[in-house]
Every structure is written in structure tokens, then in C-alpha cells.
Design a protein around this nucleic acid. Structure first.
Lengths: 161, 161
DNA sequence: TGACATTTACTGCCTGAGCAATAATTGTCT
DNA sequence: AGACAATTATTGCTCAGGCAGTAAATGTCA
């Protein structure tokens, strides 16, 4: 941290990345969830569905880690997806703690049917952005996330000397 | 939308801006809120506090618009901040629908005392980023937010032909 | 002026999600 | 082997926040 990037004096919440991220989140969620309103999916469920499809995750703990989600909430989310016939649970035989998840044909069909809508949505949202800008935004958000993952959550708020 | 940026075939949730935004959000919130744990502030309350301090907002409706927040939740958020002596409500005389908000000295003191922590946090989080990269990320997130604001929330999911 | 829409603030209702604790299973290390 | 830590899945408790509806005040427009 040789050269601090931010100074106390210029801090304004309008250009704070925290505020911007929150704003983006609040703008994005309702618009995204409106796209799969007929499938009655939460955004979390949508991400879980896609992550299972792409083989990125295979258990509840994987999902919780992948989207930095609470494990309890993840269990309940999977309950719903199982009830709707999108995924199945299978207790692992090698490690009996683990419950393996897999997409049902219906789950796969739902995922496939929703992708075009999402792609259309993003193409409309990113109209006016150059491919390089989209690439840059994606990469910077990924890097910032990776960086934050290395920073522990402070138990006690740090007192300034 | 002359040249679509995304194609259905390459869609992967790992590099989706929706997923990245959600991930950033889930990483950011607990780390930020841990910073003002002793003030017992929510992230929303923190943003509201700063927005009032900077004169960006002056009513509940302003806050709701500024952080794309539910108006009901905003009312209850202000209830808490008022109960803690951070803000005061004053019914406007010109427009009797409006309740003007203003920071109390305590509210101002809390805001001032927390800013350095946030700045420190961001300087640590952004270590490894060039000033240009931070600038680019901020600007791209702002632009995407502005773009999304112009896009209405779909009532009916659009059927693809 | 009067009908109608809009804005502001607020309330009940319900859901998604975070926190803490638990049981079962597995890994680690002396 | 045995004590202890770590991991997985799960549940109860609680709360922030979204949705819909309401009342009061204001704006709009024929």
C-alpha cells in the first residue's frame, strides 16, 4: 500500500464502489428476476442452476462458497428447487457427509430455455459499451472479488491510533 | 444493438456481470458492516447517512430513489436512525406531504468518525489496482447503472419467437 | 372548479437470507 | 488408537427488505 488511492478528504459516496455496487445490485435483481418470472426462480436459484449445469458446483457447500452465500439459506434454496423437480439429492457413498446434487431433465430444460433471455437482456443493457469495456468491467470486478476474498471480516472494528 | 456483444453459446455464469455483481455484493456487505459494528449501522444506513451529509438527499423518497430502495424499508430505516438520534424529521411547510430529514450533531459525528475506516478499507482492497483501473471500474459501474435505470422492469417475460 | 392522476409517507404481510447451534462424518496429529 | 479439529448438511431465530394497499397533499387538465 505504498500510495493510497483514496484520501479521507475526497470521499464521496456517489463515486464509492460500495455504493455503486449496491446500486447496480438493486437495479439488476428485479430486472433479472422479471425475466424468469414464469419459472419462479430467484436470482440465487438461477445462478445455482447454471453453476450445476456448467459443472462448477456439485454440492450445497460448493454453491454456498461459489456465490458467497449462507449455508442455511442454501439448504432451503435447494429444498425448493428439489420440490419443483429441478434438482435431485443423492447422499454420497464415499463421504457420507456430502449430498451430491444433479440437475433433472426439467432443470436442464429450464436452464436452457432461460439463457437466451438473459443474453438478450445483457445485450440490451450493454448497448453503448465497446467489447473492450465489457471485458474490462468483467475483469476488474473479478479481480476485486478475488482480492476481497483474501481479506478477512474484521471481528472488532479497528481503532485508529 | 447493431453488434450483439454476448452470444447464447458462450454464456457462462462465471463471467456474467450479474453473477460477478452478486458475488461482489456478498463479499462487500459483511466486510463493510464489520467496519462500523460498534455504530450498529447497516450498509443502507451508512449510505443514507453519507448522502444526507453530502446534501445529495433530504427526504425519504430521495433516499429510496438514490439507492433504488423500497420506500417502506426506507421509512423503517429512518425510524431506527431517528430512534438512535442520528437524524430528525421535520414536516415541510411548503409541501405538507414531505418530511425533511436532517443530521443531528451525533449523526454528523458518526459519519465523520467512520469515513477514515472506509477509506482505509478501500485502500487495502484496491491495493494492486492502478488509479486508472479504479477510475475505469467506477466509471463503468456508474454507466451501467445509468443504463439500467432507463430499462423498465418487464411485467411479462418476453417470449422468443 | 372539479375530476383524476401523481407524489409522499407510512403500514401490514411475507419471503430470502444471515447467525448460531447441532449432529454426523471425516481428517489430523500425537 | 484416541483426542481434537474441520467439514457437511441441516434447523430455529431473527431481521432487512420487497409488495401491495392506504391516506393525505399536490399537480394536471378539461
Amino acid at each position: 500500500m505504498a500510495k493510497p488511492i483514496l484520501k479521507v478528504a475526497d470521499f464521496s459516496c456517489r463515486q464509492s464502489l460500495g455504493y455503486l455496487n449496491r446500486r447496480l445490485f438493486n437495479l439488476l435483481m428485479p430486472r433479472a428476476e422479471a425475466l424468469f418470472a414464469d419459472a419462479e426462480l430467484t436470482f440465487s436459484q438461477w445462478v445455482a442452476l447454471m453453476s450445476l449445469r456448467d459443472g462448477i458446483v456439485s454440492t450445497a457447500a460448493d454453491i454456498a462458497r461459489h456465490l458467497d452465500h449462507d449455508t442455511g439459506a442454501t439448504t432451503r434454496m435447494i429444498d425448493q428447487m428439489e420440490k419443483r423437480g429441478l434438482v435431485t439429492r443423492t447422499r454420497s457413498t464415499e463421504d457420507r457427509r456430502i449430498v451430491n446434487l444433479s440437475l433433472t431433465p426439467q432443470g436442464r430444460a429450464v436452464a436452457r430455455s432461460l439463457v437466451p433471455r438473459i443474453v438478450d437482456f445483457w445485450n440490451e443493457a450493454l448497448d453503448g459499451f465497446t467489447p473492450a469495456e465489457v471485458e474490462a468491467l468483467t475483469e476488474l470486478m473479478r479481480r476485486l472479488g478475488d482480492r476481497l476474498e483474501t481479506m478477512p471480516i474484521a471481528d472488532e472494528p479497528r481503532r485508529r491510533a
